[in-house]
């Protein structure tokens, strides 16, 4: 097991480095620097500013400096646009928000999705099965950027129950719509995967044996069927995580929740490279770590995996 974790880490770390270097090269290749504005600065001033941000040094020196400061101090450097803040400040401000509703969306997607899928599989061809299948098909065509306006229309404009946006320290009224909008399509996918996986498992010999020897159904499901059922769901969690973290951009823009997505899009329009890079690297790191955890969990649950 330990050697598996180490081997998996040996892939994750170079991946991260590639991401850092790749985004730096992209930024370096950008035509025009961040300080080329419509009113050109006097060359002396420009030279001073560039010296301050280290932009006057040769390419390899800049990249080494950047990578070293990112890797050793988690320092993404100063923001080019917000003069009084560093990229770390921006992330520190936005990330807790993203983490809060992201966490709840993930919890909702997994718990509701898995229970819906299991219920549908156990009571196949009952109303709950049709309901689950209907929901999962319907939600497939409702990605977050379609869900968000629809929710806003219903709950804020028509019913007036929920605030149309903002964060307000993460009060529950402000959390509901972001969480629903972000989790729905993943909830649907998880429900569908769970259902088909559970149906497959319930048809296997060892489940038949368990039922035949008189175990109560509850115990068969929980002790025997659940573990193999959850494996395909587990391997879907990686892509779902990527999707959700990407979707958080939409949530932030639409509900003005103030997460990192909002900074990301603002920076994208203002060419604030250092913020974009910082967030890209942060998100990439999270994704890679999450995939690592999923892989380890998978190897731990599934006895057939050799490592």
């Amino acid at each position: 097991m330990l050697s598996f974790v180490i081997r998996r880490l040996a892939v994750a770390i170079p991946t991260l480095l590639i991401l850092v270097v790749l985004s730096f090269i992209l930024m370096y290749a950008a035509p025009g620097g961040p300080f080329n504005s419509e009113r050109p600065l006097p060359p002396e001033v420009l030279a001073n500013i560039e010296a301050k941000y280290g932009l006057d040094q040769p390419f390899w020196r800049q990249i080494v400096n950047y990578v070293v400061s990112v890797v050793t101090q988690f320092d993404f450097g100063p923001s080019f646009q917000y003069k009084d803040r560093s990229v770390n400040d921006v992330i520190a401000q936005g990330f807790p928000v993203t983490l809060t509703y992201g966490f709840w969306s993930f919890v909702v997607a997994v718990t509701v999705g898995v229970s819906l899928g299991v219920a549908a599989a156990i009571k196949q061809n009952s109303w709950i099965d049709y309901f689950a299948v209907g929901v999962s098909i319907g939600a497939q065509v409702l990605p977050n950027f379609v869900m968000a306006p629809i929710l806003l229309l219903i709950f804020t404009l028509w019913l007036g129950w929920l605030p149309g946006g903002g964060w307000n320290g993460g009060q529950w009224q402000f959390l509901i719509m972001p969480v629903i909008a972000l989790s729905t399509s993943y909830m649907a996918s998880i429900a569908r995967i769970t259902r088909s996986s559970m149906l497959e498992v319930l048809n296997t010999n060892f489940i038949r044996t368990a039922i035949a020897k008189g175990l109560p159904m509850r115990r068969v499901i929980w002790r025997h069927a659940m573990k193999p059922t959850i494996l395909p769901v587990l391997s879907y969690l990686g892509p779902a995580f990527v999707g959700m973290i990407t979707g958080s951009v939409i949530i932030d823009v639409f509900f003005s929740t103030g997460g990192i997505g909002q900074f990301f899009v603002n920076s994208a329009f203002n060419r604030d490279y250092s913020v974009i890079m910082g967030i890209t690297i942060l998100v990439g790191t999270l994704t890679i770590l999450f995939n690592l955890v999923v892989d380890i969990l998978y190897a731990w649950i599934d006895p057939k995996i050799r490592y």
Binding site: V11, A12, P14, T15, I18, L19, L22, S23, L26, M27, A29, A30, G238, V242, I245, T246, V249, F264, A268, R271, Y273, I276, M277, I279, T280, V283, G284, T287, I288, N291
Partner: peptide, 23 residues
């Protein structure tokens, strides 16, 4: 396949937006 794995674990939407901004 390792290359595919590496590429898959990068959140591409962010990289693409970075590229759209830069180029």
């Amino acid at each position: 396949m390792r290359i595919v794995d590496v590429l898959m674990s990068i959140p591409f939407m962010f990289v693409l937006i970075l590229m759209l901004v830069i180029f």
